[in-house]
């Protein structure tokens, strides 16, 4: 929501990231929402639009460790989670942490690797822990994964199963910058990489504290009903084969809470729900083949539903 005041600290984070990424404040705010809500983001976009840069800047701003995993067909689960290696000196298997042992992870082109490797990451995302050789290792908090998918190449890809898409709180698209924005990108590129100059705005601990605070954002019953109405509609919609699961409702609420918090509100309004629905819900539904043949997209369906479900504007007196 343009023009609305933002939480001062979080506003600074957004400003910080924007020093590096030009004109993507909306995307930054959404990613930050996911981060604060303890969720993960699936970015579907072509290479070279600054995904890595944004995640790095975000990680730096919150003072978190950042790791990047480039998913390839031959990537093994242990390449993600780490591996136990026999140390002849101590006569013990020693755990060598993999790239997943960081706070913020960019999983690039996640659909290029085999499902086995994907699920290693996904387990970490859902459970907050990884299991190596039967030993469950907790992941450090905060833990935030931003996975990217390349929508152009389908050869040799393993599309994420629906059950796993569900694990991502938001599915976002980055999009190309506008002309003026791109000119600005070029200007900045002349001066050299600004990423290195970024300083952190908050510490990891503060971030964890903020994550706790978000749970206190008030969601009125009317809003909960509204969320359920929307989700329910996806389950009864003619063009939808598989509707949003209850996990989706929870995700929508949590994202809305985070989003409201970023905008310095301690309560959720229908605008939050509506705004986030188009990012939280589309990847959680499966369209019927008829709807697909008609060229309809999940986003369109969700927008239709939003236009249809009455916004709660009065309280029953």
């Amino acid at each position: 929501m343009q023009g609305e005041t933002m939480h001062p600290k979080l506003e600074k984070i957004v400003e910080n990231v924007e020093k590096v990424i030009v004109g993507k404040s909306e995307l930054v705010i959404l990613s930050l929402s996911a981060l604060l809500a303890g969720g993960h983001v699936l970015l579907e976009d072509v290479p070279g639009v600054g995904k890595t840069m944004m995640v790095k800047a975000l990680a730096k701003s919150v003072g978190a460790d950042f790791k990047r995993i480039q998913f390839t067909p031959d990537l093994l689960p242990s390449d993600v989670t780490g591996v136990s290696i026999y140390n002849p000196k101590t006569i013990e298997f020693e755990y060598r942490p993999g790239p997943i042992m960081a706070n913020i992870i960019l999983a690039d082109e996640i659909n290029r690797s085999s499902p086995k490797t994907q699920s290693a990451l996904l387990e970490g995302m859902e459970e907050g822990s990884v299991t190596i050789d039967g030993v469950t290792m907790p992941l450090e908090k905060p833990f935030f994964v931003m996975a990217t998918q390349n929508p152009v190449e389908y050869e040799g890809t393993y599309p994420l199963p629906e059950a796993q898409l569900d694990r991502f709180l938001l599915k976002l698209k980055m999009g190309y910058p506008s002309v003026t924005e791109e000119v600005e990108v070029l200007t900045r590129a002349e001066k050299g990489q600004p990423l290195d100059e970024l300083t952190s705005v908050i510490t990891k601990d503060e971030l964890t504290a903020l994550q706790e605070e978000i749970k206190q954002v008030y969601v009125d019953d009317t809003i909960k009903h509204y969320i359920v109405d929307i989700v329910n509609k996806t389950r009864n919609h003619d063009s939808v084969y598989l509707g949003v699961s209850p996990r989706g409702s929870v995700a929508l609420m949590k994202a809305s809470q985070a989003y409201a918090f970023i905008h310095a509100r301690d309560y959720v309004i229908p605008d939050d729900v509506q705004y986030l629905s188009v990012h939280v819900l589309p990847h959680r539904i499966i369209l019927t083949s008829e709807a697909r043949y008609e060229g309809r997209t999940a986003e369109q369906i969700i927008e239709d539903i939003l236009a249809e479900i009455p916004v709660p504007v009065v309280r029953s007196l």
Binding site: I269, P270, D271, Q274, A307, E308, I309, P310, V311, V313
Partner: peptide, 10 residues
Amino acid sequence: KRENGQTLRE
């Protein structure tokens, strides 16, 4: 007229 799906803010 307010549309069904229009929030109060909009």
